[in-house]
Design a protein around this nucleic acid. Structure first.
Lengths: 307, 307
DNA sequence: ACCTGAACACCGTTCAAGT
DNA sequence: ACCTGAACACCGTTCAAGT
Protein backbone atom coordinates (compact mmCIF):
# COMPACT_ATOMS: atom_id res chain seq x y z
CA UNK A 1 0.00 0.00 0.00
CA UNK A 2 2.60 2.47 1.09
CA UNK A 3 5.19 0.73 -1.07
CA UNK A 4 7.41 3.40 -2.66
CA UNK A 5 6.91 3.83 -6.42
CA UNK A 6 10.38 2.65 -7.33
CA UNK A 7 9.76 -0.74 -5.68
CA UNK A 8 6.49 -1.00 -7.52
CA UNK A 9 8.17 -0.33 -10.86
CA UNK A 10 10.98 -2.75 -10.06
CA UNK A 11 8.42 -5.44 -9.15
CA UNK A 12 6.59 -4.94 -12.46
CA UNK A 13 9.77 -5.41 -14.48
CA UNK A 14 10.87 -8.34 -12.30
CA UNK A 15 7.55 -10.00 -13.03
CA UNK A 16 8.07 -9.68 -16.76
CA UNK A 17 11.51 -11.24 -16.43
CA UNK A 18 10.32 -14.12 -14.26
CA UNK A 19 7.42 -14.93 -16.56
CA UNK A 20 9.73 -14.90 -19.55
CA UNK A 21 8.11 -11.89 -21.19
CA UNK A 22 11.59 -10.40 -21.07
CA UNK A 23 14.31 -12.96 -21.85
CA UNK A 24 18.05 -12.91 -21.18
CA UNK A 25 19.65 -10.29 -23.39
CA UNK A 26 16.43 -8.35 -23.90
CA UNK A 27 16.55 -4.67 -23.08
CA UNK A 28 14.46 -3.63 -20.13
CA UNK A 29 12.78 -0.21 -20.31
CA UNK A 30 15.33 2.59 -20.02
CA UNK A 31 15.03 5.13 -17.25
CA UNK A 32 13.95 7.63 -19.85
CA UNK A 33 11.20 5.37 -21.13
CA UNK A 34 9.98 4.78 -17.60
CA UNK A 35 9.95 8.51 -16.95
CA UNK A 36 7.96 9.18 -20.09
CA UNK A 37 5.55 6.27 -19.87
CA UNK A 38 4.84 6.29 -16.15
CA UNK A 39 5.24 9.98 -15.47
CA UNK A 40 7.63 9.47 -12.57
CA UNK A 41 10.82 11.36 -11.73
CA UNK A 42 14.18 10.31 -13.14
CA UNK A 43 15.37 9.53 -9.62
CA UNK A 44 12.52 7.04 -9.19
CA UNK A 45 13.23 5.29 -12.48
CA UNK A 46 16.95 5.14 -11.74
CA UNK A 47 16.28 3.61 -8.34
CA UNK A 48 13.95 1.01 -9.78
CA UNK A 49 16.62 -0.21 -12.19
CA UNK A 50 19.21 -0.11 -9.41
CA UNK A 51 17.08 -2.55 -7.40
CA UNK A 52 17.08 -5.04 -10.26
CA UNK A 53 20.78 -4.51 -10.81
CA UNK A 54 21.49 -5.23 -7.16
CA UNK A 55 19.43 -8.39 -7.40
CA UNK A 56 21.58 -9.50 -10.33
CA UNK A 57 18.55 -9.73 -12.61
CA UNK A 58 19.80 -7.15 -15.08
CA UNK A 59 23.11 -5.68 -16.11
CA UNK A 60 23.78 -2.20 -17.46
CA UNK A 61 26.13 -2.15 -20.41
CA UNK A 62 27.36 1.39 -20.97
CA UNK A 63 26.28 2.47 -24.40
CA UNK A 64 23.76 -0.30 -24.97
CA UNK A 65 21.33 0.13 -22.11
CA UNK A 66 20.18 -2.24 -19.42
CA UNK A 67 19.47 -5.82 -20.41
CA UNK A 68 18.28 -8.97 -18.68
CA UNK A 69 21.30 -10.83 -17.40
CA UNK A 70 22.23 -14.12 -18.99
CA UNK A 71 22.31 -16.55 -16.07
CA UNK A 72 25.76 -17.97 -15.30
CA UNK A 73 27.45 -18.85 -18.60
CA UNK A 74 27.03 -22.63 -18.25
CA UNK A 75 30.04 -24.65 -17.03
CA UNK A 76 32.62 -22.66 -18.96
CA UNK A 77 35.30 -21.23 -16.67
CA UNK A 78 33.90 -17.94 -15.54
CA UNK A 79 36.03 -14.96 -16.43
CA UNK A 80 37.92 -13.77 -13.37
CA UNK A 81 36.07 -10.93 -11.70
CA UNK A 82 37.53 -7.94 -13.44
CA UNK A 83 40.19 -6.27 -11.40
CA UNK A 84 39.36 -2.79 -10.19
CA UNK A 85 41.52 -0.18 -11.91
CA UNK A 86 41.51 3.57 -12.27
CA UNK A 87 40.66 3.10 -15.93
CA UNK A 88 37.59 1.01 -15.20
CA UNK A 89 36.41 3.59 -12.68
CA UNK A 90 36.83 6.43 -15.16
CA UNK A 91 35.16 4.49 -17.99
CA UNK A 92 32.20 3.67 -15.76
CA UNK A 93 31.94 7.24 -14.53
CA UNK A 94 31.88 8.49 -18.10
CA UNK A 95 29.16 6.03 -19.07
CA UNK A 96 27.00 7.05 -16.13
CA UNK A 97 27.59 10.74 -16.78
CA UNK A 98 26.73 10.37 -20.47
CA UNK A 99 23.55 8.45 -19.68
CA UNK A 100 22.23 10.28 -16.64
CA UNK A 101 24.27 13.42 -16.16
CA UNK A 102 27.13 14.34 -13.89
CA UNK A 103 24.93 14.53 -10.82
CA UNK A 104 24.29 10.78 -11.10
CA UNK A 105 28.01 10.12 -10.76
CA UNK A 106 28.43 9.55 -7.05
CA UNK A 107 31.18 7.52 -5.50
CA UNK A 108 28.60 5.15 -4.08
CA UNK A 109 26.81 4.73 -7.37
CA UNK A 110 30.08 3.95 -9.16
CA UNK A 111 31.01 1.45 -6.49
CA UNK A 112 27.65 -0.30 -6.90
CA UNK A 113 28.06 -0.28 -10.67
CA UNK A 114 31.47 -1.91 -10.30
CA UNK A 115 30.37 -4.35 -7.63
CA UNK A 116 32.72 -3.09 -4.93
CA UNK A 117 32.36 -1.21 -1.67
CA UNK A 118 32.44 2.57 -1.84
CA UNK A 119 35.78 2.79 -0.10
CA UNK A 120 37.51 0.55 -2.60
CA UNK A 121 37.37 3.36 -5.14
CA UNK A 122 39.54 5.50 -2.93
CA UNK A 123 42.49 3.22 -3.47
CA UNK A 124 42.51 4.24 -7.13
CA UNK A 125 41.25 7.82 -7.13
CA UNK A 126 41.84 10.41 -4.44
CA UNK A 127 38.20 11.45 -4.28
CA UNK A 128 35.34 12.90 -6.20
CA UNK A 129 37.30 16.00 -7.31
CA UNK A 130 40.23 13.96 -8.58
CA UNK A 131 37.81 11.78 -10.49
CA UNK A 132 36.47 14.84 -12.28
CA UNK A 133 39.96 15.78 -13.40
CA UNK A 134 40.45 12.25 -14.70
CA UNK A 135 37.18 12.53 -16.60
CA UNK A 136 38.28 15.74 -18.31
CA UNK A 137 41.61 14.19 -19.26
CA UNK A 138 39.95 11.10 -20.67
CA UNK A 139 37.55 13.11 -22.83
CA UNK A 140 40.28 15.36 -24.16
CA UNK A 141 42.32 12.31 -25.13
CA UNK A 142 39.29 11.12 -27.09
CA UNK A 143 39.42 14.31 -29.17
CA UNK A 144 43.04 14.87 -30.23
CA UNK A 145 44.21 17.89 -32.17
CA UNK A 146 46.01 17.25 -35.47
CA UNK A 147 49.64 18.24 -35.87
CA UNK A 148 50.48 20.59 -37.40
CA UNK A 149 46.88 21.43 -38.34
CA UNK A 150 45.67 23.23 -41.45
CA UNK A 151 47.48 26.27 -42.80
CA UNK A 152 46.28 29.73 -41.78
CA UNK A 153 45.22 31.10 -38.40
CA UNK A 154 41.52 31.10 -39.27
CA UNK A 155 41.33 27.46 -40.28
CA UNK A 156 43.30 26.55 -37.17
CA UNK A 157 41.03 28.46 -34.82
CA UNK A 158 37.97 26.99 -36.50
CA UNK A 159 39.40 23.54 -36.12
CA UNK A 160 40.27 23.78 -32.43
CA UNK A 161 36.87 25.31 -31.67
CA UNK A 162 35.05 22.56 -33.52
CA UNK A 163 37.07 19.84 -31.82
CA UNK A 164 36.15 21.32 -28.45
CA UNK A 165 32.54 21.70 -29.55
CA UNK A 166 32.41 18.08 -30.56
CA UNK A 167 33.84 17.01 -27.20
CA UNK A 168 31.22 19.09 -25.41
CA UNK A 169 28.41 17.74 -27.57
CA UNK A 170 29.50 14.15 -27.06
CA UNK A 171 29.68 14.67 -23.30
CA UNK A 172 27.16 17.31 -22.29
CA UNK A 173 28.47 17.37 -18.72
CA UNK A 174 31.92 18.49 -19.84
CA UNK A 175 31.29 22.26 -19.91
CA UNK A 176 30.57 22.20 -16.17
CA UNK A 177 33.97 20.70 -15.56
CA UNK A 178 36.21 23.01 -17.54
CA UNK A 179 37.56 26.19 -16.09
CA UNK A 180 39.61 28.75 -17.89
CA UNK A 181 42.29 30.89 -16.31
CA UNK A 182 43.01 28.04 -13.97
CA UNK A 183 42.97 25.38 -16.65
CA UNK A 184 43.10 22.04 -15.02
CA UNK A 185 46.82 21.94 -15.39
CA UNK A 186 47.14 18.61 -17.02
CA UNK A 187 48.93 18.00 -20.30
CA UNK A 188 45.71 17.29 -22.20
CA UNK A 189 44.24 20.70 -21.32
CA UNK A 190 47.51 22.55 -21.74
CA UNK A 191 47.79 21.09 -25.23
CA UNK A 192 44.64 22.93 -26.28
CA UNK A 193 45.88 26.27 -25.02
CA UNK A 194 49.30 25.66 -26.54
CA UNK A 195 47.75 24.75 -29.89
CA UNK A 196 45.63 27.90 -29.84
CA UNK A 197 48.55 30.14 -28.89
CA UNK A 198 50.54 28.52 -31.67
CA UNK A 199 47.77 29.33 -34.16
CA UNK A 200 47.95 32.98 -33.07
CA UNK A 201 51.72 33.16 -32.86
CA UNK A 202 52.43 34.87 -36.16
CA UNK A 203 49.73 37.52 -35.91
CA UNK A 204 50.67 41.19 -35.60
CA UNK A 205 49.09 41.58 -32.17
CA UNK A 206 50.64 42.28 -28.76
CA UNK A 207 51.19 39.18 -26.65
CA UNK A 208 48.57 40.27 -24.10
CA UNK A 209 45.97 40.45 -26.82
CA UNK A 210 46.89 37.06 -28.22
CA UNK A 211 46.47 35.67 -24.71
CA UNK A 212 43.07 37.31 -24.38
CA UNK A 213 42.11 35.74 -27.67
CA UNK A 214 43.30 32.32 -26.55
CA UNK A 215 41.14 32.66 -23.45
CA UNK A 216 37.96 34.16 -24.87
CA UNK A 217 37.57 31.86 -27.87
CA UNK A 218 37.37 28.62 -25.84
CA UNK A 219 35.19 30.38 -23.26
CA UNK A 220 32.78 31.28 -26.03
CA UNK A 221 32.64 27.71 -27.28
CA UNK A 222 32.17 26.43 -23.78
CA UNK A 223 29.44 28.98 -23.02
CA UNK A 224 27.45 27.93 -26.03
CA UNK A 225 27.99 24.26 -25.20
CA UNK A 226 26.82 24.83 -21.64
CA UNK A 227 23.64 26.45 -22.92
CA UNK A 228 22.94 23.59 -25.28
CA UNK A 229 23.72 21.12 -22.50
CA UNK A 230 21.18 22.84 -20.26
CA UNK A 231 18.64 22.14 -22.96
CA UNK A 232 19.70 18.48 -23.14
CA UNK A 233 19.42 18.15 -19.40
CA UNK A 234 16.02 19.81 -19.32
CA UNK A 235 14.79 17.36 -21.93
CA UNK A 236 16.05 14.43 -19.92
CA UNK A 237 14.52 15.71 -16.71
CA UNK A 238 11.17 16.81 -18.04
CA UNK A 239 10.83 14.44 -20.97
CA UNK A 240 9.78 17.39 -23.15
CA UNK A 241 11.82 18.63 -26.03
CA UNK A 242 12.06 22.28 -26.92
CA UNK A 243 9.12 22.26 -29.26
CA UNK A 244 6.82 20.43 -26.83
CA UNK A 245 7.90 22.83 -24.13
CA UNK A 246 6.81 25.87 -26.08
CA UNK A 247 3.51 24.28 -27.00
CA UNK A 248 2.63 23.20 -23.48
CA UNK A 249 3.62 26.40 -21.77
CA UNK A 250 1.88 27.08 -18.52
CA UNK A 251 -1.03 29.47 -18.53
CA UNK A 252 0.81 32.33 -16.84
CA UNK A 253 3.62 32.32 -19.35
CA UNK A 254 1.18 32.03 -22.22
CA UNK A 255 -0.64 35.01 -20.77
CA UNK A 256 2.59 36.97 -20.56
CA UNK A 257 3.47 36.20 -24.15
CA UNK A 258 -0.01 37.26 -25.22
CA UNK A 259 0.06 40.37 -23.06
CA UNK A 260 1.84 42.45 -25.64
CA UNK A 261 4.73 43.10 -23.28
CA UNK A 262 7.00 40.79 -25.27
CA UNK A 263 6.01 41.19 -28.91
CA UNK A 264 9.30 40.00 -30.42
CA UNK A 265 9.51 37.00 -28.16
CA UNK A 266 5.92 36.11 -28.98
CA UNK A 267 6.68 36.33 -32.70
CA UNK A 268 9.52 33.88 -32.28
CA UNK A 269 7.84 31.37 -29.98
CA UNK A 270 7.63 27.87 -31.28
CA UNK A 271 10.24 28.61 -33.90
CA UNK A 272 12.22 25.42 -33.65
CA UNK A 273 15.89 25.67 -32.91
CA UNK A 274 16.46 22.95 -35.41
CA UNK A 275 20.20 22.92 -35.39
CA UNK A 276 22.36 23.52 -32.36
CA UNK A 277 25.55 23.25 -34.43
CA UNK A 278 24.39 26.28 -36.40
CA UNK A 279 24.70 28.29 -33.19
CA UNK A 280 28.39 27.48 -32.96
CA UNK A 281 28.96 28.35 -36.60
CA UNK A 282 27.10 31.64 -36.10
CA UNK A 283 29.16 32.65 -33.07
CA UNK A 284 32.39 31.42 -34.61
CA UNK A 285 31.86 33.31 -37.87
CA UNK A 286 31.07 36.54 -36.01
CA UNK A 287 34.08 36.23 -33.78
CA UNK A 288 36.59 35.30 -36.45
CA UNK A 289 35.25 37.92 -38.87
CA UNK A 290 35.80 40.37 -36.02
CA UNK A 291 39.34 39.14 -35.54
CA UNK A 292 39.97 39.50 -39.26
CA UNK A 293 38.81 43.11 -39.05
CA UNK A 294 41.11 43.69 -36.11
CA UNK A 295 44.04 42.26 -38.08
CA UNK A 296 43.33 44.50 -41.05
CA UNK A 297 43.37 47.51 -38.73
CA UNK A 298 46.61 46.36 -37.08
CA UNK A 299 48.26 45.81 -40.43
CA UNK A 300 47.14 49.00 -42.12
CA UNK A 301 48.24 50.96 -39.05
CA UNK A 302 51.61 49.35 -39.64
CA UNK A 303 51.89 47.99 -36.12
CA UNK A 304 50.12 46.61 -33.14
CA UNK A 305 49.51 49.75 -31.10
CA UNK A 306 46.17 50.66 -32.66
CA UNK A 307 43.04 49.88 -30.70
CA UNK B 1 40.63 15.01 23.77
CA UNK B 2 38.83 13.78 20.73
CA UNK B 3 36.31 16.60 21.06
CA UNK B 4 35.56 17.88 17.56
CA UNK B 5 36.91 21.38 16.86
CA UNK B 6 33.50 22.93 16.40
CA UNK B 7 32.46 21.96 19.95
CA UNK B 8 35.69 23.39 21.26
CA UNK B 9 35.06 26.69 19.52
CA UNK B 10 31.47 26.75 20.72
CA UNK B 11 32.62 26.11 24.29
CA UNK B 12 35.10 28.96 24.14
CA UNK B 13 32.44 31.42 23.01
CA UNK B 14 29.94 30.04 25.53
CA UNK B 15 32.45 30.67 28.26
CA UNK B 16 32.84 34.30 27.25
CA UNK B 17 29.06 34.73 27.32
CA UNK B 18 28.64 33.05 30.71
CA UNK B 19 31.40 35.11 32.30
CA UNK B 20 29.92 38.29 30.93
CA UNK B 21 32.84 39.07 28.63
CA UNK B 22 30.20 39.09 25.90
CA UNK B 23 26.94 40.72 26.99
CA UNK B 24 23.45 40.51 25.53
CA UNK B 25 23.41 42.31 22.19
CA UNK B 26 27.16 42.01 21.68
CA UNK B 27 28.24 40.48 18.42
CA UNK B 28 29.94 37.15 18.72
CA UNK B 29 32.77 36.40 16.25
CA UNK B 30 31.42 35.87 12.75
CA UNK B 31 32.06 32.63 10.93
CA UNK B 32 34.46 34.47 8.72
CA UNK B 33 36.38 35.89 11.70
CA UNK B 34 36.60 32.42 13.20
CA UNK B 35 37.87 31.02 9.93
CA UNK B 36 40.52 33.71 9.67
CA UNK B 37 41.61 33.81 13.30
CA UNK B 38 41.56 30.10 14.07
CA UNK B 39 42.40 28.73 10.66
CA UNK B 40 39.49 26.32 10.60
CA UNK B 41 37.14 25.49 7.75
CA UNK B 42 34.00 27.51 7.14
CA UNK B 43 31.93 24.42 7.88
CA UNK B 44 33.50 24.15 11.33
CA UNK B 45 32.88 27.79 12.18
CA UNK B 46 29.30 27.57 10.94
CA UNK B 47 28.69 24.50 13.03
CA UNK B 48 30.12 26.12 16.15
CA UNK B 49 27.71 29.03 15.85
CA UNK B 50 24.86 26.64 15.10
CA UNK B 51 25.48 24.92 18.44
CA UNK B 52 25.14 28.19 20.32
CA UNK B 53 22.10 29.10 18.28
CA UNK B 54 20.47 25.79 19.14
CA UNK B 55 21.20 26.42 22.81
CA UNK B 56 19.42 29.75 22.53
CA UNK B 57 22.52 31.61 23.64
CA UNK B 58 22.87 33.63 20.45
CA UNK B 59 20.65 34.73 17.62
CA UNK B 60 21.65 35.39 14.02
CA UNK B 61 20.14 38.49 12.51
CA UNK B 62 20.62 38.42 8.74
CA UNK B 63 22.57 41.47 7.76
CA UNK B 64 23.82 42.27 11.24
CA UNK B 65 25.60 39.13 12.27
CA UNK B 66 25.20 36.87 15.27
CA UNK B 67 24.69 38.48 18.65
CA UNK B 68 24.25 37.29 22.23
CA UNK B 69 20.56 36.82 22.85
CA UNK B 70 18.85 39.20 25.23
CA UNK B 71 17.27 36.90 27.78
CA UNK B 72 13.49 37.10 27.66
CA UNK B 73 12.79 40.82 27.16
CA UNK B 74 11.61 41.59 30.71
CA UNK B 75 7.83 41.87 31.03
CA UNK B 76 7.38 44.04 27.95
CA UNK B 77 5.38 42.37 25.24
CA UNK B 78 8.00 40.64 23.15
CA UNK B 79 8.37 41.95 19.64
CA UNK B 80 7.00 39.34 17.29
CA UNK B 81 9.82 37.21 15.99
CA UNK B 82 10.37 38.46 12.47
CA UNK B 83 7.89 36.72 10.32
CA UNK B 84 9.25 34.25 7.81
CA UNK B 85 8.58 35.38 4.25
CA UNK B 86 9.68 34.32 0.80
CA UNK B 87 11.58 37.59 0.52
CA UNK B 88 13.58 36.98 3.67
CA UNK B 89 14.45 33.49 2.46
CA UNK B 90 15.63 34.76 -0.93
CA UNK B 91 17.60 37.62 0.61
CA UNK B 92 19.32 35.24 3.00
CA UNK B 93 20.03 32.76 0.23
CA UNK B 94 21.62 35.49 -1.87
CA UNK B 95 23.80 36.64 1.01
CA UNK B 96 25.01 33.11 1.66
CA UNK B 97 25.63 32.47 -2.05
CA UNK B 98 27.58 35.70 -2.45
CA UNK B 99 29.71 34.97 0.59
CA UNK B 100 30.30 31.26 0.31
CA UNK B 101 29.08 30.12 -3.09
CA UNK B 102 25.95 28.41 -4.29
CA UNK B 103 26.96 25.07 -2.82
CA UNK B 104 26.71 26.57 0.68
CA UNK B 105 23.03 27.39 0.08
CA UNK B 106 21.26 24.37 1.48
CA UNK B 107 17.74 24.37 2.76
CA UNK B 108 19.01 23.36 6.17
CA UNK B 109 21.65 26.06 6.26
CA UNK B 110 19.09 28.72 5.33
CA UNK B 111 16.72 27.46 7.98
CA UNK B 112 19.45 27.67 10.61
CA UNK B 113 20.38 31.15 9.40
CA UNK B 114 16.75 32.23 9.78
CA UNK B 115 16.22 30.45 13.08
CA UNK B 116 13.48 28.12 11.88
CA UNK B 117 13.18 24.43 11.25
CA UNK B 118 14.12 23.20 7.79
CA UNK B 119 10.54 22.35 6.91
CA UNK B 120 9.27 25.83 7.62
CA UNK B 121 10.95 27.04 4.45
CA UNK B 122 8.75 24.76 2.39
CA UNK B 123 5.72 26.80 3.28
CA UNK B 124 7.19 29.69 1.32
CA UNK B 125 9.22 28.07 -1.45
CA UNK B 126 8.40 24.84 -3.23
CA UNK B 127 11.90 23.45 -2.84
CA UNK B 128 15.52 23.95 -3.68
CA UNK B 129 14.87 24.26 -7.44
CA UNK B 130 12.16 26.85 -7.01
CA UNK B 131 14.47 28.81 -4.75
CA UNK B 132 17.04 28.95 -7.53
CA UNK B 133 14.49 30.42 -9.89
CA UNK B 134 13.62 33.02 -7.27
CA UNK B 135 17.31 33.87 -6.93
CA UNK B 136 17.67 34.43 -10.67
CA UNK B 137 14.60 36.64 -10.70
CA UNK B 138 15.84 38.69 -7.76
CA UNK B 139 19.24 39.30 -9.37
CA UNK B 140 17.75 40.28 -12.70
CA UNK B 141 15.49 42.77 -10.95
CA UNK B 142 18.63 44.27 -9.42
CA UNK B 143 19.97 44.97 -12.92
CA UNK B 144 17.18 46.54 -14.97
CA UNK B 145 17.48 47.44 -18.64
CA UNK B 146 16.80 51.04 -19.64
CA UNK B 147 13.87 51.87 -21.88
CA UNK B 148 14.17 52.55 -24.72
CA UNK B 149 17.94 52.23 -24.49
CA UNK B 150 20.54 54.04 -26.59
CA UNK B 151 20.06 54.52 -30.33
CA UNK B 152 21.65 52.02 -32.69
CA UNK B 153 21.83 48.24 -32.61
CA UNK B 154 25.47 48.15 -31.60
CA UNK B 155 25.11 50.39 -28.58
CA UNK B 156 22.06 48.40 -27.52
CA UNK B 157 23.81 45.05 -27.78
CA UNK B 158 26.82 46.40 -25.91
CA UNK B 159 24.55 47.69 -23.19
CA UNK B 160 22.57 44.51 -22.64
CA UNK B 161 25.78 42.46 -22.64
CA UNK B 162 27.41 44.73 -20.08
CA UNK B 163 24.35 44.70 -17.85
CA UNK B 164 24.40 40.91 -17.88
CA UNK B 165 28.13 40.90 -17.31
CA UNK B 166 27.74 43.16 -14.29
CA UNK B 167 25.05 40.88 -12.86
CA UNK B 168 27.34 37.89 -13.31
CA UNK B 169 30.30 39.68 -11.77
CA UNK B 170 28.26 40.82 -8.78
CA UNK B 171 26.95 37.31 -8.20
CA UNK B 172 29.53 34.80 -9.41
CA UNK B 173 27.13 31.90 -8.87
CA UNK B 174 24.65 33.30 -11.40
CA UNK B 175 26.16 31.78 -14.57
CA UNK B 176 25.53 28.29 -13.19
CA UNK B 177 21.87 29.11 -12.83
CA UNK B 178 21.06 30.53 -16.24
CA UNK B 179 20.09 28.36 -19.14
CA UNK B 180 19.43 29.48 -22.64
CA UNK B 181 17.00 27.90 -25.05
CA UNK B 182 14.84 27.05 -22.08
CA UNK B 183 15.15 30.46 -20.50
CA UNK B 184 13.72 30.27 -17.07
CA UNK B 185 10.39 31.47 -18.33
CA UNK B 186 9.88 34.26 -15.91
CA UNK B 187 9.22 37.84 -16.92
CA UNK B 188 12.61 39.07 -15.75
CA UNK B 189 14.47 36.65 -18.03
CA UNK B 190 12.07 37.09 -20.92
CA UNK B 191 12.66 40.82 -20.72
CA UNK B 192 16.32 40.35 -21.59
CA UNK B 193 15.56 38.23 -24.65
CA UNK B 194 12.82 40.63 -25.71
CA UNK B 195 15.14 43.60 -25.31
CA UNK B 196 17.80 41.89 -27.43
CA UNK B 197 15.35 40.88 -30.15
CA UNK B 198 14.10 44.44 -30.16
CA UNK B 199 17.63 45.72 -30.67
CA UNK B 200 17.97 43.42 -33.68
CA UNK B 201 14.50 44.03 -35.07
CA UNK B 202 15.36 46.51 -37.79
CA UNK B 203 18.37 44.66 -39.17
CA UNK B 204 18.28 43.20 -42.69
CA UNK B 205 18.65 39.61 -41.52
CA UNK B 206 16.27 36.66 -41.66
CA UNK B 207 14.32 36.08 -38.48
CA UNK B 208 16.09 32.77 -37.84
CA UNK B 209 19.43 34.54 -37.91
CA UNK B 210 18.25 37.29 -35.58
CA UNK B 211 17.13 34.56 -33.17
CA UNK B 212 20.52 32.86 -33.39
CA UNK B 213 22.14 36.17 -32.62
CA UNK B 214 19.85 36.73 -29.64
CA UNK B 215 20.86 33.33 -28.30
CA UNK B 216 24.60 33.31 -29.00
CA UNK B 217 25.42 36.76 -27.64
CA UNK B 218 24.14 36.14 -24.09
CA UNK B 219 25.68 32.63 -24.19
CA UNK B 220 29.02 34.21 -24.97
CA UNK B 221 28.71 36.66 -22.07
CA UNK B 222 27.67 33.89 -19.75
CA UNK B 223 30.49 31.61 -20.89
CA UNK B 224 33.08 34.23 -20.15
CA UNK B 225 31.44 35.00 -16.80
CA UNK B 226 31.43 31.32 -15.88
CA UNK B 227 35.13 31.12 -16.62
CA UNK B 228 35.88 34.14 -14.50
CA UNK B 229 33.65 32.76 -11.75
CA UNK B 230 35.61 29.51 -11.80
CA UNK B 231 38.66 31.60 -11.07
CA UNK B 232 36.89 33.39 -8.20
CA UNK B 233 35.81 30.10 -6.71
CA UNK B 234 39.26 28.61 -7.04
CA UNK B 235 40.68 31.59 -5.18
CA UNK B 236 38.18 31.17 -2.38
CA UNK B 237 38.78 27.46 -2.10
CA UNK B 238 42.55 27.43 -2.37
CA UNK B 239 43.31 30.87 -0.99
CA UNK B 240 45.65 31.46 -3.92
CA UNK B 241 45.08 34.07 -6.54
CA UNK B 242 46.00 33.53 -10.17
CA UNK B 243 49.49 34.95 -9.84
CA UNK B 244 50.34 32.93 -6.74
CA UNK B 245 48.99 29.84 -8.45
CA UNK B 246 51.33 30.19 -11.38
CA UNK B 247 54.30 30.84 -9.12
CA UNK B 248 53.66 27.87 -6.83
CA UNK B 249 52.92 25.35 -9.54
CA UNK B 250 53.62 21.80 -8.62
CA UNK B 251 56.81 20.23 -9.78
CA UNK B 252 55.25 18.05 -12.46
CA UNK B 253 53.53 20.97 -14.13
CA UNK B 254 56.65 23.08 -13.89
CA UNK B 255 58.53 20.22 -15.51
CA UNK B 256 55.97 20.03 -18.31
CA UNK B 257 56.21 23.75 -18.94
CA UNK B 258 59.98 23.49 -19.02
CA UNK B 259 59.91 20.40 -21.19
CA UNK B 260 59.70 22.32 -24.43
CA UNK B 261 56.41 20.64 -25.32
CA UNK B 262 54.47 23.84 -24.59
CA UNK B 263 56.72 26.72 -25.66
CA UNK B 264 53.94 29.30 -26.14
CA UNK B 265 52.27 28.46 -22.87
CA UNK B 266 55.61 28.68 -21.10
CA UNK B 267 56.23 32.11 -22.62
CA UNK B 268 52.93 33.34 -21.28
CA UNK B 269 53.10 31.83 -17.81
CA UNK B 270 52.92 34.25 -14.94
CA UNK B 271 51.57 36.92 -17.24
CA UNK B 272 48.93 38.36 -14.98
CA UNK B 273 45.37 38.46 -16.22
CA UNK B 274 45.10 41.89 -14.70
CA UNK B 275 41.67 42.80 -15.92
CA UNK B 276 38.81 40.35 -16.31
CA UNK B 277 36.56 43.05 -17.74
CA UNK B 278 38.99 43.40 -20.64
CA UNK B 279 38.11 39.84 -21.62
CA UNK B 280 34.46 40.81 -22.07
CA UNK B 281 35.39 43.87 -24.11
CA UNK B 282 37.68 41.76 -26.28
CA UNK B 283 35.02 39.13 -27.00
CA UNK B 284 32.30 41.74 -27.45
CA UNK B 285 34.33 43.81 -29.89
CA UNK B 286 35.22 40.78 -32.01
CA UNK B 287 31.62 39.57 -32.08
CA UNK B 288 30.02 42.90 -32.87
CA UNK B 289 32.67 43.77 -35.48
CA UNK B 290 31.80 40.43 -37.04
CA UNK B 291 28.11 41.28 -36.99
CA UNK B 292 28.88 44.63 -38.60
CA UNK B 293 30.70 42.81 -41.40
CA UNK B 294 27.75 40.49 -41.84
CA UNK B 295 25.41 43.46 -42.13
CA UNK B 296 27.58 45.12 -44.74
CA UNK B 297 27.45 41.91 -46.78
CA UNK B 298 23.70 41.62 -46.37
CA UNK B 299 23.18 45.21 -47.41
CA UNK B 300 25.52 45.25 -50.40
CA UNK B 301 23.92 42.02 -51.63
CA UNK B 302 20.69 43.96 -51.49
CA UNK B 303 18.89 41.43 -49.36
CA UNK B 304 19.09 38.91 -46.61
CA UNK B 305 19.64 35.76 -48.62
CA UNK B 306 23.39 36.04 -48.82
CA UNK B 307 25.42 33.86 -46.51
C1' DA C 1 50.68 -3.21 4.92
C1' DC C 2 46.71 -3.33 2.41
C1' DC C 3 41.94 -3.12 2.09
C1' DT C 4 37.32 -1.74 3.24
C1' DG C 5 32.96 -1.64 6.45
C1' DA C 6 31.10 1.26 9.92
C1' DA C 7 30.32 5.59 11.13
C1' DC C 8 30.03 10.64 10.81
C1' DA C 9 28.31 14.76 9.20
C1' DC C 10 25.96 16.29 5.80
C1' DC C 11 21.89 16.78 1.98
C1' DG C 12 16.53 17.49 0.05
C1' DT C 13 12.15 16.16 0.89
C1' DT C 14 8.10 13.00 2.45
C1' DC C 15 5.06 12.03 5.84
C1' DA C 16 2.56 12.04 9.72
C1' DA C 17 2.04 13.82 14.12
C1' DG C 18 1.20 17.70 16.58
C1' DT C 19 -1.29 22.30 17.39
C1' DA D 1 -6.19 23.51 8.51
C1' DC D 2 -1.78 24.90 9.31
C1' DC D 3 2.75 24.03 10.68
C1' DT D 4 6.92 21.43 11.37
C1' DG D 5 9.84 17.50 13.69
C1' DA D 6 11.05 12.87 12.69
C1' DA D 7 12.39 9.98 9.40
C1' DC D 8 13.98 8.34 4.87
C1' DA D 9 17.08 7.85 1.29
C1' DC D 10 20.76 9.76 -0.22
C1' DC D 11 25.89 12.04 -0.29
C1' DG D 12 31.57 12.23 0.37
C1' DT D 13 34.96 10.89 3.28
C1' DT D 14 37.35 9.67 7.93
C1' DC D 15 38.75 6.24 10.75
C1' DA D 16 39.70 2.15 12.69
C1' DA D 17 39.05 -2.57 12.49
C1' DG D 18 39.87 -6.48 9.95
C1' DT D 19 42.89 -9.50 6.86
Amino acid sequence: MTEPPYLHIAAAIRHRIETGALRPGDRVPSTRQVVRDLGVAMATATRALAVLRDEGLVVTRPGSGTVVRTPDPPARRRAPVQELTTDRIVTTAMAVADAEGLEAVSMRRLAAELGVGPMSLYRHVAGRDALEVLLVRAVLREHPLPEPGPPGWRAKLELVSRVQWRAYRTHPWLPELISMTRPVLVPEAMAHTEWTLQALAGLPLPQAERLREALTLPALVRGLAASVAAETRAERETGQDNHEWWTTLGGEVRALLGSGRFPHLAAVQGQTLEDMDALLEHALTRHLDGLEMRLRAATSAGGSTSR
